[in-house]
Amino acid sequence: MLVDRMSRGCNLPRMRCAFRFAAWLAAALPVRAAAQDTYYLAVGAVGATKLVQDQIIAPIDVRQSLAPAIIVGAALTAFPRYRAGLELEFASGGFHATESGVTTRLGTVRTLAATLGLDGPVVSRVRWRLGTGLIHYMPSDDQGIFLQGGTTRWLAGLGAEYRHPLKPDRWDLLALLRYDIHPFLTDQLQSRGFSQARYVHRLTLSVGIARAAQ
């Protein structure tokens, strides 16, 4: 609110404008430092849609199993109501191929997603988040679709968080819901004629703790 009034009031004489700007800074900065900056840690699980869909005789799907995930993040106040932050999500789990109802385990793949995001309020304890960044796939073995190694792709995501204050204050219980989408294609798939990436959707649900920075 102060920012909006400030911008509209700048047709005042320059001295008064500068004074009001200094007053706004003095009022806004302590709020920003005490109430908004935060860092957090959460653990949960991530589920994803198919990595690959193919057909040699019958349709073949490759997908990741539900994988445990750990999320760490930090956010600084960008505007009085909004924060900008960095979030890292690490997950590790199996992946498998399914053809005609028969499932073949293909090994383990780890993913590390890093997103820069903006979050803002929805209602009192619930906030939305919008993020973009990169996701890196790290297979346990260089074989099959990962014969030529892992892959790094861009990522875009949406999310929501709920915070419940704990005692002593500055600590919150945190529930995070994250959805993201990224294109998936490996060098090996490209060398075998897959010319287009497949869009993979992921949903992560996690709980953890958050702390407001002083």
Binding site: I181, G193, Q196
Partner: peptide, 15 residues
Amino acid sequence: GVLLLACGDVSSPSR
């Protein structure tokens, strides 16, 4: 944008 991306699909390569 995400919803639009979600609509696409990829066919198998010719072998």
